[in-house]
Design a protein around this nucleic acid. Structure first.
Lengths: 320, 320
DNA sequence: GTGAAAGCGCTAACAA
DNA sequence: TTGTTAGCGCTTTCAC
């Protein structure tokens, strides 16, 4: 590996001239520029990021913390975050935490050691140690006082979707969702439902618990056995909506004639396109862009918004 | 940020004693150990990864190159790769390349600058510059001579699946797959089909082209219009299998009575569980583990296998 | 305009 | 056993 020293020697100039040339800082004569360019080319020299980081105190890396990267929503947002970070010159270190405290601690160390410049969180844990000084941003989660948060308008879009079901004639509208373990923007989907049925004087038909992975169908089955006359479902995730549809098919309940379904997220549908769910689609790309933007503002010491709300899109499909 | 110097001063010892203490190398008296521990604690000192890397020439980071992280197969394998790398003390930098040459070049730079210690490739491009000296590993792709490759036994498992269709009574078995743009292990799914129908003296009914994202259904439709009497389908991916099922449902073709479907991958099915496809499941976790293992052997200069073949699992569902 | 020199925080060889 | 010292590759004053 050639170093800056080798380049300087070969070009017959000083080290700092090479450095100035590389960083476009200070003056380098045309004559020397050419010599340096040649030397760099001949030696196939690449400046060391590591050494630069040691001096400059930034690594151009950001850590992305997700509960699991193997999930439709998280991998999609990871996709856009990586994209926008890359566009701004940053690499993405992925940490699939499995709610593993140890990984959280390592992240803090990475931050403190300048191995990464900041972090984006999309996770369920609450971390007391994460004070607002560190360059953090969260998506859909409240981490701590002062940590900026990007979220979709869970409340309003859920409310609108419910209104749509109501206007379509549903009188027994159910809510099926997994209960988040911590304070999270996702809770607002549930709040919106409760306020909606209260306002409209409708019955509250709810399945809202911490659903273990793989138990989704069982939850849906139990829901329908307890509430067979439900004529509209708001499912808080793609996966649950699919289970509802599957249950309906298996029990000869016609969708949308007898049962209308609206799903939140609309991520899986892009892959399988069947059934064509009516859904509230989170604007994942915009959320990712905003997260990157706010984080880089923090890193660079620029002013930023404490909270950014991204509107959802209502997509009419064939299940309503 | 406290440095090793601060710790040494506070503990009243030399810098190298602290370093020795931290790295468990060389001798440090019990007395000094305690003093050092205290100083570290009081100052909340964390050794700088960056500075260490500069000296030691490795970053404990690995780059993972995928065409897109927003895809069931790639995000699942990314999940396991991150897991196993983490277990071995390495972080994962994700690069979602979109077949973007520029990102490839940056990766090479990262390698050359020791910003990452190695890379795992799951991508469609062929890169001439990637010589076998660099610590690379590929999954399901041939990159270049000498770059070790991890792959599932595409040929044998496809062949077995076709045999299963045949034994179940199918006489007109079709193959639908997207054609990889480069030499790839995935090609063997197609080869296996061709040899199978040749051996059994069956007609070759094939749709095999480079399918643009979103065009899957159109491809399936065209296939069935040209070959309406097909009674068995081997779909080279989850997504295509779903499209086939969707087409069948829409055209009142009963599955599995009139049409049997076997899907390769079986990843999406874990998310949606419907329909319950018979499928050839790649052992993603084992592939990831092998990739990490081979890569770290390369990085550490240990001997490794040029090619590792991971067996697939045949899972009987309700579409056959 | 330019280059020598002083670090960034750490490791490791070497002298004490 | 310990501390001093010379780098790792780069950036950045600061004299020349």
């Amino acid at each position: 590996m050639a170093t800056i020293k080798d380049v300087a020697k070969r070009a017959g100039v000083g080290i700092s001239s090479v450095s100035r040339y590389l960083n476009n800082s200070g003056y380098v004569s045309e004559e020397n520029k050419i010599k340096i360019e040649q030397a760099i080319c001949e030696l196939n020299y690449k400046p060391s990021y590591i050494a630069r980081t040691l001096k400059a105190r930034h690594a151009y890396m950001v850590a992305l913390f997700v509960p699991t990267i193997s999930h439709p929503f998280f991998c999609k947002i990871a996709y856009y975050i990586e994209h926008y970070l890359y566009e701004r010159g940053y690499k993405t270190v992925i940490i699939s935490s499995q709610n593993n405290k140890q990984k959280e601690i390592e992240l803090l160390q990475m931050l403190e050691q300048n191995q990464v410049d900041g972090a984006i969180f999309i996770t369920h844990h609450y971390y007391e140690k994460m004070n607002s000084k560190l360059p953090l941003v969260t998506i859909d989660r409240h981490l701590a006082e002062g940590v900026p948060c990007i979220t979709s308008d869970n409340y309003q879009s859920t409310f609108n979707a419910l209104e749509f079901l109501y206007q379509s004639g549903c009188k027994k509208i159910g809510f099926i969702g997994g209960q988040p373990r911590t304070e999270s923007e996702v809770l607002y989907r549930y709040y919106a439902y409760q306020e909606f049925v209260h306002e409209r004087d409708l019955p509250s038909i709810v399945s809202y618990s911490d659903i273990p992975h793989g138990e989704e169908y069982e939850v849906v089955r139990a829901f329908f056995e307890n509430n067979p006359k439900t004529d509209g479902i708001f499912a808080a995730s793609d996966m649950l909506a699919n289970m509802v549809y599957q249950y309906a098919t298996a029990h000869n309940i016609r969708v949308p004639e007898e049962l209308k379904i609206i799903s939140y997220d609309g991520i899986i549908s892009e892959w399988i396109q069947y059934p064509d769910f009516t859904c509230v689609k989170q604007n994942v790309e915009a959320m990712a862009k905003a997260a990157v933007d706010v984080l880089l503002r923090r890193i660079k010491g620029k002013p930023y918004d404490k909270k950014t709300v991204i509107p959802c899109t209502f997509v009419k499909g064939k299940t309503t």
